[in-house]
Amino acid sequence: MTGMDHPVSAVAGSGAPRRGGLGTLPSFRWVAIAVILVGWFVYYPIVDNFVVSTTNQDIYTGEIEYVGLDNYARLLDDPVVWISLRNNLLYAAISVVFQVFAAFLLAAVIEGLESERSRRFWRAVYFVPSAISITVTGLLFYFIYQPRIGLLDAGLSALGLGALSRPWLGSEDTAIYAIIAMSQWQGFGYSTLLFGLAIQKIPRELYDAAIMDGAGPLRRLWNVTFPMTREMTGLMIIVTITGAFQVFNEVMVMTAGGPNNSSQVLGTWLYQQGFIQNEFGYGAAIAAVIFLVTLVTGMAQLWYTRHRRVQL
C-alpha cells in the first residue's frame, strides 16, 4: 500500500544508485524541462519580486525609481498591513480548530461507523464543497450573507432569532469572520477525509488490546487514535497555517477587503496596492512578507516530515 509514508521521503534523496560521472550527463534530459520551467516561472519571479520591492514604478510612464528599503519601512507604518496580518492569523487559528481538531474528531466518528458504505457516504458528502471552486462558494455565501433577504438572515428570523441578523459581510466586526466561516464550511471535509485515511491505517490489534484493557470509546480515541495520527495532525496544522497566509480568492470574491479594509488579508492587500493603486513596488514588498511567512511554515513542514521519518 502506497500511502502516507511517501511525503516522508520527499526531499530526502532517492533510491536510485548514485553513480555520477560525465557519462551520465545525458540523463539530465529527463529533468531538464521541469528544471527550466520551475526555475523560470516559479523561482525566478521570487527573486525578481525582491528587486521590484526596492523600486517605485509608475505603470503609466514606465518610470522606475530605486528606493532601497523604503517600501519595507512603509509596511511598518501601514495600519492595513497589520489588519491583514491579524486577519491571516485569525484565519490560521480558526482553521486549525475546525479543519484540524474538529475534522479529526469527525473522522474518528465516521471511521467508527460499522458499514463501509456509510463511512464512504459521509466522507463523500462532507468532501463535496472542497471540490467546488472558491469563486462559486464565495458568490454563494455572498448571497447567503445578504442582509435581511439572504438565506442566513431568513433562516434566523424563521427560527425566531431575527435579532441576531446583521450585515454579515457589511460590518467591520463580522466581515472577516463571515469569510472564515465560509472557508471552514468548504474545507473541513477535505481534512476529515485525510484523517479518515490515517485512522484506517491504525492496526486493528491496538484497538483490540485497548478493549481487552476495558477502555471505552473515548479512552480508545485518546489513547490509540490520537497518538497514532499525531504525525498527520502535525502536518495538517502546518499545511493549514501555510494555506491561511495564501488566502486570496474568498476574500476577493466576497468583500474585496471591505468594509474599510477590515477584511483585508495580505494577498488582497497586495492586489489592491499592486493592481488598483499602481504601487507595484509596495505590492512586491507585501508579497515578500507572504514569502517569508510561507517559507518559515514550509521549512517547518520539511523539517517535520524528515523528523518523522527518523522516528519511524
Partner: peptide, 19 residues
C-alpha cells in the same frame, strides 16, 4: 535536482504575481 524541483512546492503563486 530533487530538492530544486520539489522545493517549488513551497513557493506561493501570490508572491510571484507582480514579476
Amino acid at each position: 535536482v530533487v530538492g530544486f524541483v520539489l522545493g517549488g512546492l513551497m513557493l506561493s503563486p501570490t508572491v510571484a504575481l507582480i514579476p
